[in-house]
Structures are given as C-alpha cells and as structure tokens.
Nucleic acid binder design. Structure first.
Lengths: 331, 331
DNA sequence: CTGAAAGCGCTTACAG
DNA sequence: CTGAAAGCGCTTACAG
C-alpha cells in the first residue's frame, strides 16, 4: 500500500491524502472521512524509509552537555552517543558535544547558552542538581533529556541507572559471599547525592532479607581517592568488616587502603572503570555492578531524535538501564 | 555531497558515476579514474536512506528453521527475530519461520526443503549436529547463519553463546559462594554435546584458580526433568556437595530433588526460563547465567539481511553473545 | 479546499 | 561506453 494507491482508491490526489495523514488540515470533512476509512481498511502504513529520506532535508541539531573530562565513567557514554550519531547522520542529524570538567554550575549554564546560540533543536544534559541550573533549564523551549543524573524539570525523558535497584543487586552479591552472615561497610561519595543514598538503601533492603547480614558502617569519601584512602585506612584500624562496598568513586584509594591493611576483605564496587577492571582481573575486587553506560549514551540520542524527527515520545519517560553484574571472566 | 554533485564535478552523468561506484563496468578507464579521484577528494558517501529506499523494491526473503516448540528458551530468541523483522519490513524484508518440535534430523531437513521451495534468499537455522543435516546444508547455495548451535559448514556466521566462557562465569559465581572452599556437582544433559561439555570445562578451569574448590561429580540428565529428578535424588542420598550446578535443561526436576533432600545446597543454573525465574525469586536458585537469547535472534536476522542487501559481511563470523549473571533482583 | 508538479538521492532500464 | 529519463514513496510549495 502506497499513498498513491490510497489516493486512487479515494479518487483524490496524493497531496490531499498526505494532508489527512499528517493532520495538516484544509481537507473537507467528507473527503477526510472517506480517506481515513480507506487507510483503515487497507491498513496503510507510511513507508518509513521514504519519510526518513524527506526528513533528512531538514537538518536536526542536538546539543550535549556532559561533565566527561577526567571522568572515565563517561567514556562509554560518549561512545554510545557517537555511534548513534553516526547511524543517524544520513537522517540529517548533527550532534554538538560540550565536554565539561568538574561540577561547576556556572560553566554548565554557559555551555548550555553556547549550544542554544547555535540553534540546537534538543538538549541532552548530565545536569548538576542545583537551583540555578534547574531554573535555566526550565526556561528553555526545546525538549530536554536528562542523562545519567535526573533533575526535577519538565523533560522528555530521563535516561540512566535505577540506583536503588543497582544497590539491591549489590546486596544480592553480598548475600552470595556472606551467606553465612557478616558485616558490611558501605562507602559512597556523599549521602546528599540521591544516587549514592539510593544505592546504599537498596543494598540495605536486599541484605535485610538475610537474618545475619548487617551494614555496620556508612562512610563518605567525597568521591575523592585521597580522602577515600585515609577514610578506609582509619576505619580498618579499628574494624574488620566481612565485606566492603564502594558505591561511587574513590575506589582506587579505598582499595589501596584495604591492601595495605593486610586484611583479606572481599570488595564489591560499581561501574567498570580501568581501576575496577584491573582489580577485578587480579581478584582484589570480587564483583562489580555496571549500569550500561554505552546504552545510556545511545538511547538518549535515539529518544531525542525520535521525538524531534517523528514526534514520537518514549513509552516511559523514565528509561532505566539495567544493573549488570561483572565478575572476573565476564566479557 | 550527492551523486549529482559528483557527476557535475566530473562533467558526466549520474548514471556513469553510479556505474563507477557500484563497479558495474562499462566506463572508460580515464573517466573512471577521474570520477574515483573526485569521490575520494570530496569524501563522498552514498546516502544510505536513498539506497535503502531503492533496495526495498527487490523483496528479500529469509527462512528460519528453529526447534522452538515446547522449548521456552527459544521464546526470547523468536522475539528477537520478530522485532528485527518488523524493523526491516519497510526495507523489503520478509521472514518465514519454521517452528519445529524436538530434534528430528529428518523433520529439520524437510523444513529446510520447504523453505527452499519458497525461494528464500538466506537461511537461519539452529542445526542438529548430524551428518545428514550437515550434508544437506553444504549443498545449499544461499548464505546460512547458524543460530545458537554451531555446525561445521561453510556459513556466513555463527550467532550464539560462548559456552566455555559461560561456564567460566558460572565458576566465578561458585568462587563467590565457596570462597572458603567446597565441592561442586555439575549436571548437564550430555557430555557428547559440545556446548554442555564446554560449559563444564569452563567451570572447572575457573574454579581451578581456587585452591580448595573441586568439581567432584559430573552427571548427565539427558536434558530430561524425570531423569534429572532421579539422578539428583540418588546422588544426594550418598553425597552432600557444597554447590550444585545445572548447565543445561532438566532444572525443574533437579531442583525438586534438592528440595526433597532437605539439604540446603546453593544451586546455580543457566538461562532464564520461567522455572529458573521462579526459583531465583524464591531464593532456591542462587544465581543464573544467561546468554542474551533475544540478541541472538535479533543479530542473526540483522547479519543475514546486511549481507543480502548490502553484501556486508560481519566483522567476525563468530558472533558471541555475552554471558550475563542474574541474581534475585536483576531486571 | 484541492491537485499538478517538483523534489529528496539514488538506481534501473533504454536508446544511442 | 554514455546520458537522458523514469521511478522508489513520500513531502512541499504553489497555483487555482
């Protein structure tokens, strides 16, 4: 079935059928009804390829603001963004990325403004969760996708990790290792960060299903290796938990402290940075739970493009990637 | 850059440029050279959308032979095939699936013949690894993708699980649970099946890295729940392994026997059938390792289509899906 | 409100 | 060996 055949069946022109299909108005009610009936009856589906070919004429620009500099976690996110961009290039998509270093809200707002000046049609951002950024994003007329970190604004979608579930899975791993019971020390960056808090809550909920496992310490390392090192070193002087959980950054420092303590404590971590990979390989980190960073990049571009090009909204605006367990021989 | 612009730069027609690009011959050497230089210089890339639109005129047919009836593992494989088919429908792809029950080589050959009569352009098959099937496949002129099970023929690709690695990962899980040492009983269908054998070999290689873990029993249940039940029941009368590994089918029967034995033995399994899901949920199965069945279906169609439509061969003809660990709260 | 025409970037006969 | 023309299925001005 093509638009031409529909037009012939309705005794009208392709242009008119097109107007009906795409709701552009300017069609008499009777004719519209007739055309709709034929479309229904013949189960007509527009050819996506032909549509895409036309669509590619109007170039779409997506802007990305991401604090990826010096943060290896985002390497895979970027890779996902890049590959999806390449695939959609012939569809007329251009993507402009602003790589930021650190968490300066001021710089983030400037980056947003730079992109807006270039007349982007949509924005993907790993937002810093503070009021000025939120305010700035609220005033933007184009659709926004929050990537990896959520923010309370009117957005097309959030693409990222379900931190609570991620913590639950870490708890499941802890239960495998400590099936005879034991204590856990959990280290994250900062409990004010919702992701960090949720991970530990998930961990506690999950191990709470075992009668003899307790999270006996919750420590903050500010995502900093130096702080993490001293924190864990001091803690292990007076404590010997049966398992150590690192639910955010500062893993290298923390692991170093464990090794120097001489205590043989199982370590489980999150994500799969080079540091984690190396220690997993050597059997120092026993397990890690990743969050499909590549997919996060890939999906966020895909969702935004689909909306801009075809007005297609994601089924669920909260698009969670899966927590995946990686052990020594995982690929 | 479009083909029209190239033609203008070369002072020739689009048709001639097209002949050069697609190596259809009938172009004078000098003109060809000139055109190639311009293409190079301008870094011309043909518009894939336009190509696909043309391509969709010649309808491609892919045939699938899969022994999916009564084997819930294949539900997700089928889902992957179906969704990829839907995506490629506007590209002119039609897929015809022959669902088979059981492992009759004779029926499989008949199914192949039925598809060939319908003039399929490519074949996807979960082959039964016997000589008659192999012989039949050898004589087929169209490209073949071996799905989930490999077979020694000249094929476009194998898409499936890396069984050895899958077993290694199971071993990694065993090491988490038995970090203080212990014995493992491994149950598979039949050690003559290469996948089953490789899984157990992987398991042994992995736990071999721990000084005090040994696989003390390797049992065959013929992939049958009844046999599995009696086998495990008898075994547990005289043995108490610290962990039970089910590396193939017959899990429901085996689990039943463990429960009736009253012994609290950790169980790890493969794949994620309803039986496994239920027992994972209830904490009876401690962990399972899946092999991305959905992706196996998805990829096999994609690879075959890419070859038929664009003569694009997969980078690696052995396309392994990843072994993924699932615990109670995995999604 | 409606239709004829031109166009997207490519490929495919066909005439010379 | 080469080029002009028609076509894929859709959309977009434009003239009436």
């Amino acid at each position: 079935m093509t638009i031409r055949e529909i037009a012939e069946l309705a005794g009208t022109s392709r242009g008119t059928v097109d107007r009906v299909i795409n709701g552009r108005g300017n069609v008499s009610p009777e004719l519209e009804k007739k055309i709709r009936e034929i479309i229904q009856r013949e189960n007509y589906q527009p050819n996506q390829l032909a549509q895409a070919l036309i669509n590619s004429r109007k170039h779409l620009r997506i802007g990305v603001v991401i604090h990826s500099v010096g943060n290896p976690f985002f390497d895979d996110v970027i890779k996902g963004i890049d590959e999806r961009t390449k695939k959609l290039k012939s569809y007329g998509l251009e993507v402009q990325v602003e790589h930021l270093k650190g968490y300066s809200e001021w710089e983030q707002i400037q980056a947003i403004d730079r992109l807006l000046e270039q007349e982007i049609d949509g924005l993907i951002i790993t937002p810093i969760n503070v009021v000025p950024v939120q305010k700035r994003l609220e005033t933007i007329a184009i659709p926004i996708v929050a990537l990896n970190t959520d923010i309370h604004i009117n957005k097309l979608a959030f693409v990222g990790c379900d931190y609570h579930n991620n913590g639950m899975i870490c708890g499941d791993i802890a239960k495998l290792i400590l099936h005879q019971g034991g204590t856990i020390a959990a280290v994250v960056g900062n409990f004010d960060m919702s992701g960090h808090k949720q991970r530990v809550e998930g961990l506690e909920e999950s191990v709470g299903q075992h009668p003899n496992i307790v999270v006996t310490a919750k420590l903050e390392n500010q995502d900093d290796d130096q702080i993490s090192y001293h924190l864990v070193k001091d803690y292990l002087k007076t404590h010997s938990p049966h398992l150590l959980y690192f639910g955010a950054a500062g893993i290298a420092g923390g692991v170093q402290a464990v090794l120097e303590s001489g205590k043989n404590i199982p370590i489980i971590t999150v994500d799969e940075t080079d540091c984690v990979k190396k220690n997993l390989e050597q059997g120092i980190v026993w397990a890690t739970v990743t969050q499909q960073p590549y997919l996060q990049g890939d999906i966020s571009v895909k969702i935004l493009y689909d909306y801009l090009a075809n007005k297609k909204k994601p089924k669920d605006p909260y698009c969670y990637t899966k927590g995946q367990i990686k052990l020594k021989h995982s690929k």
